[in-house]
Every structure is written in structure tokens, then in C-alpha cells.
């Protein structure tokens, strides 16, 4: 099931929550909408679900224009951030709800409904919880119920709004891998909203990075890391330090910081370099000081280095024997450089 959004705009009062969003999701793909809070990712998801109107733009799902199609006719499964389980219904009734509200002509009979619920409970691996109420379940179990309930209507598209946010860190990692496996097995087109880049990078085929109501880059996780389109993406994705520099003749120079020059294919002038810890090697030298040192085994170490008033994460250069308090300088092994605007 494809999703094609173009020029979607949604205003709340004067503020534009969505400001001309274009997004195309391919059949069977898992796309993550990633961005800081207030970037419009949840609003975009709600517009696609039909829970929020749009002020401009068009939305097509499987080629069909969604203008004027209410949420209940879209056949989209939604897993809400806090799951929104029906608190007065047992788990089985929650899951059966989408089948039970169908008009009589298309509603499965009791036996078929029971069979479908049992199959879904087995699919989400909680076969014994059918008679429980939502408040008798753990967070992870509730999430599985919410997923089963959304899948019960055999949706052509699955929308997940921060689905792992309410789980603790250990459970979260397991559950998201399991969900990704399930999504692949069912081959269901899925859009996931998250502010956790690790989650987006691990789960998604492609990630749409959102900033202030726009999609600033839509690409595969590795492309986002290697070729960020804007300084915002370079700073937001990966764990990069932001260093001021000056580009002259294709070389970025960091004076007065004790950082060696870095080739940069940008016009001459002031610029900003984004360097990940793995790209910044500390060698014995002068100008910087090793403040903290965390051995990683095999002679490797993660360092925290203080240089010219900045505190930077770096790695020890291979073979170097730096200790806490040693003087050093830094050699960038790679990095992304953007001309400073204005």
C-alpha cells in the first residue's frame, strides 16, 4: 500500500504544525518520522490517519485521494502512544472491536470472531491474556494488545505513534526488533513516529527527518549518517560534536583549536564541522587535555577531551598511550562541513 503526501499543511492558529510536507512511502516499506518534539511528526501521522484535518495539500493512499474520507473508512491500523485500549473491555473484546462494529453484512459471526481473536493473540504472543482487563497488563503486554487490535481490521497501512516510548529501555529493544520482524512477515506498509534516533535508524528502511513542520531529509539511515543534507540533520543524527572552522581552498582549518585540518568540499569562508566521536582521534601533542578515559578493551579507549573551552568526545588513536591528564591534539578522520549561513 503506497502513501503519497504532497504539500500537506496544517495550521493551529498562527503556527504551522505542518508546512508543505511531501512524503512518498512505498509498498511494504517501514518509514520512520524522526524529529524533536514539536517538529510535526505526530501531526503528520494524525493527518494520514484522518484524525486531523489539513489546510492544504493532497494525500493519496493506494492511489485513492483521501480528501473527505473519514478516519473510520480509511482502513488504517493505528497504535497510539499510550495505546488507548478500551479500559472497560477485556483484551479479547478490545481486539474484536474493529470486527464487531462492522455492519451486519460484513461482520464475522461469533465463532469466526473468537477464532480471529485467538489467532491475533497468538501472533502477538499473549495467548493467555484474553480474559484480562487492560489495567491488569504490563506496558509491553498492552502494547501487544494495541498492535493486535490494530491488525484485526486487516489494515492496508499501519501507523505507530511513539509505540515504544512507554516501555523501559530493556523491553523496548526486544519489542522493537520483534515488531520489525512481524512487520516484515506481514509485509504491511508502516509509518512509525519516534524521537529516538536509535529506534528510527534500527527499524526503518527510510527515515524522514522533520524540523519545524517540514521534512528536511528523507533517506536511508546510512545515507543520513554519511550525507546529511543540512546542518540540522548532521547535528541531530549520530552523536556529532559541532566545531567552528574556516574553509580555505577546500581545507577546513580549526585554529585556534588544536584540531588538524580536514578536507572539505565547500566554498571558502566560515563554516561548521560535525564530527562524531569515532571520527576524532586523539594523539599525544599539545593544546588539549584528556579529562576522562574509558577503556574499551584491546587497547581502544573512549576519551573526553577538553580543547579551547570545548568538551569533546574522541577516540584514542591506535597505538597511542594516552592517560588521564595527558596533553594531546586531535586529528579528524572524517566529518561533514557546512558553510555558516549569512
Amino acid at each position: 500500500m503506497t502513501v503519497e503526501a504532497s504539500g500537506i499543511t496544517r495550521r493551529f492558529g498562527d503556527a504551522a504544525a505542518l508546512d508543505g510536507v511531501d512524503l512518498t512511502v512505498r509498498e511494504g516499506e517501514l518509514v520512520a518520522l524522526l524529529g524533536p518534539s514539536g517538529s510535526g511528526k505526530t501531526t503528520l501521522l494524525r493527518v494520514i490517519a484522518g484524525l486531523e484535518g489539513m489546510d492544504a495539500g493532497t494525500l493519496r493512499i493506494a492511489g485513492q485521494d483521501m480528501a473527505g474520507v473519514p478516519a473510520r473508512e480509511r482502513g488504517i491500523g493505528v497504535v497510539f502512544q499510550h495505546y488507548a485500549l478500551f479500559r472497560h473491555m477485556k483484551v479479547a473484546d478490545n481486539i474484536a472491536f474493529g470486527l464487531d462494529v462492522r455492519p451486519r453484512a460484513t461482520r464475522p459471526d461469533r465463532a469466526e470472531m473468537t477464532r480471529r481473536v485467538a489467532a491475533l493473540l497468538a501472533l502477538v504472543q499473549i495467548p493467555d491474556l484474553a480474559r484480562r482487563y487492560p489495567d491488569q497488563l504490563s506496558g509491553g503486554q498492552r502494547q501487544r494488545v494495541a498492535l493486535a487490535r490494530a491488525l484485526a481490521i486487516e489494515p492496508r497501512l499501519l501507523l505507530l505513534d511513539e509505540p515504544f516510548g512507554a516501555l523501559d529501555a530493556l523491553v523496548r529493544r526486544d519489542v522493537r526488533r520483534w515488531v520489525r520482524g512481524l512487520q516484515e512477515r506481514l509485509a504491511i506498509t508502516t509509518i512509525l513516529v519516534t524521537h529516538d534516533q536509535e529506534e528510527a535508524m534500527e527499524m526503518a528502511d527510510r527515515v524522514a527527518v522533520m524540523e519545524r513542520g517540514r521534512i528536511v531529509q528523507f533517506d536511508t539511515p546510512s545515507a543520513l549518517l554519511d550525507q546529511p543534507a543540512t546542518p540540522f540533520v548532521a547535528g541531530f543524527i549520530g552523536d556529532a560534536a559541532r566545531l567552528p572552522c574556516r574553509v580555505e581552498g577546500g581545507i577546513a582549518r580549526f585554529d585556534p583549536l588544536p584540531v588538524a585540518p580536514l578536507p572539505a568540499a565547500v566554498p571558502d569562508g566560515p563554516a561548521t564541522a560535525f564530527l562524531r566521536p569515532s571520527e576524532l582521534l586523539a594523539e599525544p601533542g599539545s593544546g588539549a587535555t584528556v579529562r576522562l578515559l574509558r577503556p574499551q578493551g584491546g587497547g581502544d579507549a573512549h576519551l573526553v577531551v577538553e580543547a579551547g573551552g570545548l568538551v569533546l568526545d574522541a577516540r584514542a588513536a591506535p597505538g597511542s598511550t594516552l592517560a588521564r591528564g595527558d596533553a594531546c591534539h586531535l586529528v579528524p578522520r572524517g566529518g561533514r562541513v557546512f558553510p555558516t549561513a549569512g
Partner: peptide
Amino acid sequence: EAAATLGA
């Protein structure tokens, strides 16, 4: 909202 997306 959940009920609406489920077709109610």
C-alpha cells in the same frame, strides 16, 4: 480516536 480508526 482509536475506535474511529477501527471503523466505529
